[in-house]
Design a protein around this nucleic acid. Structure first.
Lengths: 146, 146
DNA sequence: GTAAATTAAATCGTACGCAATTGAATTGGA
DNA sequence: TCCAATTCAATTGCGTACGATTTAATTTAC
C-alpha cells in the first residue's frame, strides 16, 4: 500500500459517510409528511416485501440489532404503522405486522419520493454502476469485519 | 421515470447508508485504542491539514452544525486532543487548536488504520472509481437539497 | 426429566445528527 | 451614534446506532 492509499481510504470513507447523510436528508423531505424517518421507512420497505416478520429477521435484512429496532418499532407502533405480537409457538420472538394504514399508504409514499426525484430532474438510471460498486464495497467491508 | 427507478433509488440510498455504517465500524476498530470515534477522527483530519480553525469553518468542511460540533469538541477537549479558545478580535467565534498530543499521534493513528487495511489485503486503488462516483452523487444530492 | 447451552428481545449507556430556538457579540445603515 | 440586522456558538429535544449486559423462553444433551 502506497502512502497515498491512506488518503484514498480516508476520502472513500468520508464520501460514503457524507453521501449517506445527504441521501437521508433528501428522503426526509418526502417522508416528513407521513411522520416517518428514513430507518422507519426501511422497515416499511422490508415489510411491504414480506409481512409478519420476526424482529431478528428484520434486523438481519437491515443490519440492525434489537437495541436499535425495539425502540424504533415501538415508535412506529405508536404512530399506527405496525403491530407487535408474540406468536403462540415461541414466546421469545416478536412478530412485526403491517397495519392497514401501512399497506394502504405504500403508493402515496412512493409517489411522494418519486415527486422529489422528478422535481430535481435526476437521471436515476445513471447510478446503476454506483449501486453495483457500492454492493462490492459492502461485500468487502463485511469480509473485513467478520 | 420508470417504475423500476423507484426501486433503484431505494436501493442506491440503502447501499450508501449500509456502506457508511460498515465503514464507520471498520474505522472504529482502529480508532478505539485512541479513544476516538469516527466523527472525532474527521475533526483531527481537518485540523491536521489546517490547525486553529473556527468552529463554523470545521462545520463547513465536514457538513456539521454547531449542534453536533459543540458537544463533540468538548469531549475531544476532555480527552486532550484539542483546546477551545475565544479570539480577542471576535468573541462570537471559537477557535479550535490541536494539542501536542494530537499533533504527535498522527503517524501512530495512520499506522493503526493502515494496519487494519493491510491485514485484510484490500486493494484500495480499486476504489478510485467508486470515490469519483460518490463525489458526483454528493454533488447531485447537494443540488437537490439546495 | 432436568440442567446447561442457545436463542431472542429488551435494557442501559454513550455518542452522534439535526431541526429549531436562544442568546451573545458584532456590524452596518440611517 | 444607535439600533436593527446579522453572525456565531450553545442549547434543547428527538431519533437513531451500537457495544455490552440482562432476562426470559426454548432446545439440547445427558
Amino acid at each position: 500500500m502506497e502512502p497515498d492509499d491512506m488518503t484514498l481510504t480516508n476520502q472513500l470513507c468520508f464520501s460514503v459517510y457524507h453521501a449517506s447523510r445527504l441521501f437521508t436528508k433528501f428522503y426526509k423531505q418526502a417522508l416528513e409528511p407521513f411522520q416517518l424517518t428514513y430507518p422507519q421507512y426501511l422497515v416499511l420497505l422490508s415489510l411491504w416485501e414480506e409481512d409478519r416478520q420476526p424482529l431478528h429477521k428484520l434486523g438481519e435484512r437491515l443490519d440492525f440489532g434489537s437495541n436499535t429496532l425495539t425502540p424504533l418499532l415501538k415508535r412506529m407502533e405508536a404512530n399506527g404503522w405496525l403491530t407487535r405480537s408474540l406468536p403462540a409457538t415461541d414466546h421469545r420472538q416478536l412478530i412485526v405486522s403491517l397495519t392497514e394504514q401501512a399497506r394502504d399508504a405504500k403508493p402515496e409514499i412512493f409517489t411522494a419520493i418519486h415527486q422529489c426525484v422528478v422535481q430535481q430532474n435526476i437521471d436515476v438510471s445513471k447510478y446503476n454502476d454506483t449501486l453495483a460498486m457500492n454492493h462490492e464495497l459492502i461485500a468487502t467491508l463485511q469480509r473485513m469485519l467478520k
